[in-house]
Design a protein around this nucleic acid. Structure first.
Lengths: 359, 359
DNA sequence: ATGAAAGCGCTAACAA
DNA sequence: TTGTTAGCGCTTTCAT
């Protein structure tokens, strides 16, 4: 590395490159931007100087004057959730393919941090902000999101809501999500077709739009099969493996008035499976279990889990694709992505004796 | 929202806030920065104006003149790998706790994209760049990393290598990793203690430093137990569930001269378990299996997987903690994090008849 | 207590 | 073909 003493304090600037190449900063800028005719001779000199000095342009200065780098920000609860991670990967992939930079922020489910992060993204000049995951939709939420949307829109950025509803169709935000109700109805139907009549929904999260929709689908399927309304049995234990485990253990301790479990998502299913095994029962022999999302390892559960496949990566891709395609912020546009059942080994007809039996 | 017509083109600037508050931009800056005495009266006026206009400072302009936001960048293969995701979460958490912004970039394993991303982070002015995950350590790698380190260092930034070696102790980079060899030796010892003598290592990746270290630990344990060198049987199928599944199927088709499998990581183990089950054999009755990393769902495999716990989130936290603590770029500093075995149900003594038997 | 003005590193007119 | 110059939005002396 041909190192001068020019590099004494911090980063190399365009001026130093210019000096070394014996040209003006304008020329260097032109060469580096590549959108302006420059004779090969000087071009080479400049390039050499830049390489020798290991120069990289200051993105902030660039952003200040010109467009700046296109940047998309994804905000999610946590990256360690397989489902969210896949969505993030989808966004990242689609963004990278277009030469956009992708920033991932996590909130741990705290609306305060979400707000903070969106603010931050406004400061950084993100052109596209994607909020991922279901939320409880109360007045505070509606107001908050309306503010995001307005503010982002005012500075020419776009807001996409992934798997959460728009607070109001008039707001400048795109919505992309799965048809949770349809998916839930389908998999409940699958259980019903196998002969189950007493199915508990494990993992309700009242107020959470995604879960509420699944519960709605579950109830709808029950109704379609002519079951009375009180056949529905929803346990609002929330999401996560631990919650599923705890709730299932509790449930098995009290009553066994059910032959199948519809878990709110695959992590809940994992916890439930473990709890069932701990109780000395077998899946699907004694109890059938289904999940939601088809995370990559659902196939490796014991037994392999029958679940609803929600193409998470595609959700992420779709979010950026749609946002970038659609030229005017077609307010209130709502995109629903389809899902389908993946049948594996966690469902079979209920035990004939009418209830689960100890092994 | 008290909206003026000031907001016509793009973002609200500090000047508009100044006008609305009837003060100079300097005063606004002082109020917003909060590091300068300002009389409460004007302070309130400015704050009100800023809120009315929904003003957010331009981070790029700020970065240009002063410190700019502290930013740490994590580079990894993919976020959908549970292990990497946890490392990223650790980095994110530790960074957020200090008010730093965290950027996640993925490379898909392509050194070219890694280089590109590091370059990008230099442009954006990241103060800390963390490269995560093992790599093949060839001359190209060494040269590339040396360049990163030098360049980053020249602009006052820091480089941390997580789970990959420093190309040369003189380079200004920190290394934080697990003691792969010790972990592998321990779990191999666990298998040997159970009575296994013919153990295959599934998931070698020659050149990959992390895997090579595990293979070394495996060999060391074998040697310690007085087994001949040729007792080692390493299958270089690489990582990932698919690879593990394929390689294991192949292996079962040909020979069964082994009673236990040491999978290079838990995803490989997942694939192997599936392949073994597909072949009509049972774990651990016919074959014992162990993994590496203890990903969150390892407990839900069939059977629950005995594996080596590598506290991934702690690795991420440690990376930023150490990098931020240590004031001079203590070149070549090497930090080793400990691991331990998590015993579950995938290991038992080998079948007494001397080999696996069909069910 | 507050304003005016000088840049931060870069790009894009405008000159030469 | 290349150089000069005026900002981009902000912070920070230096005056007032």
């Amino acid at each position: 590395m041909g190192s001068d003493m020019t590099t004494s304090k911090g980063r190399v600037t365009i001026r130093e490159v210019a000096e070394r190449a014996g040209v003006s900063v304008a020329t260097v800028s032109r060469v580096l931007s590549g959108n302006y005719p420059v004779p090969p001779a000087t071009r080479t000199r400049v390039l050499r100087a830049a390489r020798d000095l290991d120069y990289v342009a200051n993105a902030h200065a660039r952003a200040l004057v010109g467009g700046g780098r296109k940047m998309v920000a994804v905000v999610l609860r946590q990256v360690t959730s397989p489902f969210y991670a896949q969505v993030a990967e989808g966004v990242e992939a689609e963004a990278a393919a277009r030469g956009w930079l992708c920033l991932v922020g996590t909130t741990g489910g705290d609306p305060g941090r979400e707000l903070e992060f969106v603010q931050l993204m406004r400061e950084e000049g993100a052109r596209l902000v994607i909020l991922v995951g279901g939320v409880v939709e109360d007045d505070a939420y509606r107001e908050r999101v309306a503010r995001y949307a307005q503010a982002l829109d005012a500075s020419g950025a776009r807001l996409v809501l992934c798997g959460r509803p728009a607070p109001d169709p008039g707001i400048p935000a795109l919505v992309v999500e799965f048809d949770n109700e349809a998916g839930a109805r389908a998999i409940t139907g699958h259980l019903l077709s196998a002969g189950h009549r007493r199915i508990v929904f494990l993992g309700g999260l009242p107020g959470n739009t995604a879960l509420d929709a699944r519960v709605a689908g579950y109830r709808a399927a029950l109704a379609e099969h002519g079951l009375p309304t009180d056949a529905a049995h929803v346990i609002d234990c929330g999401l996560g493996r631990a919650a599923g485990h705890r709730a299932m253990s509790e449930l098995l301790k009290n009553t066994r008035e059910f032959t199948a479990v519809f878990a709110g998502d695959d992590m809940v299913a994992a916890g439930a499976l473990r709890a069932i095994a701990d109780a000395g029962l077998r899946v699907p022999h004694d109890i059938s279990v289904v999940g939601y999302n088809d995370i990559p390892l659902a196939e490796d559960f014991n037994p392999p889990l029958t679940t609803v496949r929600t193409p998470a990566e595609e959700l992420g891709r779709a979010a950026v694709r749609i946002a970038l395609r659609d030229p005017d912020h077609t307010a209130g546009t709502h995109h629903l992505l389809g899902t389908h059942i993946v049948v594996r080994d966690s469902v079979q007809p209920p035990p004939t004796d009418g209830g689960p039996t100890p092994v």
